[in-house]
Simulated scan of single mutants.
Amino acid sequence: ATKIPFRLNENQALLTFEDEEVAQRLTRMSRHCVNLDNRTANVTVKPFELDVGFLFELHITISGKKIRVSEIPELPIPKNWMRDKLELNFYKTEQAPGGGEIQDVTYTPGSGTAVITFLKPGASNKFVGHAKYPFYVEGTWFNLSVSPHFNFHLGKFQPYCRVSRKTILLKGIPEVEEDEESVQDMIEIHFQKPSNGGGEIEKIKYISRGTAYVCFEE
């Protein structure tokens, strides 16, 4: 089970019921009059939001204009020279057909990788099935690794809150003279009574001063 921390502020309480229908019913009632010894307190019941996350759709497409090249050898030549040699090599070679006119070469020295962007859409399809591609530089033949370039797009991005089905959050509990444990007992008695819409309580935590972090397992 995943332990989820929750910050409980002063004059708040968390109640977890055995039956989730009890928690749902109390939440729908929203406001409750709780007898705290010599006074009646109007408290508010809120849904207990466990955490906040995000929902989204991830769309992945294979670029028709770009390829990713790796295993480029580290040679003692300037960066722009290597970039030019990559452009000439992938434009056309004697050993294998190239992709045609090249729009851009993004070469990263030290990583041994580059992204080749061709001018015409669909040019990268010529390299499908070619895991290795010959590369002639500085009098030596090398085999470069060629792979598709993927485009990633996030769609329908929206936040969401996961709400507990069995736990409620009480807010607006007034300060009283009784100690924290006594007030917690009075809250528990009120919300256990079926006449108040309550039911059997598994756990309860009340904070009268400061804050506390409570861990719940979901």
Rank of each mutant, 00 (worst) to 15 (best):
A23F: 05
I4V: 12
R25L: 09
N89T: 01
P159Y: 03
P174D: 04
F127L: 09
S111R: 11
K65F: 00
P148R: 13
I72M: 10
K120G: 00
I62C: 03
N80C: 07
Q158C: 04
Q95D: 01
L8M: 01
E217Q: 10
S63K: 08
K46I: 14
Q103W: 15
F216H: 05
V128K: 10
K205E: 04
V128A: 15
I207L: 12
S208C: 11
E175C: 10
I189G: 03
L50T: 06
S182A: 05
G99F: 15
T140P: 04
I173H: 06
K126R: 14
Q24G: 05
N80D: 11
R7T: 14
T44V: 04
P174S: 06
L15F: 06
M29C: 08
V128Y: 10
F118C: 02
I102W: 11
R7F: 00
R209Y: 10
L169K: 05
E188L: 14
F127Y: 15
P97H: 08
K66R: 07
E188T: 13
L86Q: 04
S195R: 15
K79R: 08
T117I: 08
E49M: 06
V183G: 08
K132T: 07
S147P: 00
E218W: 14
G155F: 06
F157N: 04
L26F: 09
A212R: 10
P73Q: 12
G199K: 14
E178H: 14
E20T: 08
Y107A: 01
V22L: 11
K126H: 07
C215D: 13
V115M: 01
F150A: 03
I201R: 09
T108R: 02
F6L: 04
S182W: 01
R31H: 12
E57D: 13
F6G: 06
D84K: 08
P97Q: 15
A41M: 06
L50G: 05
H130A: 13
G100P: 08
N42A: 07
I102M: 05
E177K: 08
K65S: 14
Y213L: 03
L55G: 13
Y213G: 03
V22N: 08
G112P: 08
T93A: 08
R165M: 13
K92V: 06
Y160I: 14
F17T: 12
E21D: 13
I62M: 05
A96H: 14
M186D: 03
E217V: 15
P194L: 09
R68E: 10
T108W: 01
E180I: 11
L119N: 05
S111V: 03
V105W: 08
R25I: 01
P97C: 13
R28P: 04
P5L: 12
F6K: 11
F127R: 03
M186F: 10
D51M: 10
G198P: 02
R25N: 09
V105H: 02
E217W: 11
E57R: 08
K193S: 12
T44W: 03
V105P: 01
E175Q: 09
N89G: 12
L119W: 04
D179Y: 05
V52T: 13
G198S: 06
G172N: 15
E57N: 15
P5A: 12
V69C: 05
T113A: 00
D185P: 03
E18F: 15
D37G: 06
E94F: 10
L14W: 11
L15D: 06
S147Y: 05
A123M: 07
L154R: 14
I207G: 00
F216Q: 07
F17P: 02
L26E: 04
F157R: 07
R165L: 11
V183E: 02
K126D: 04
F135H: 01
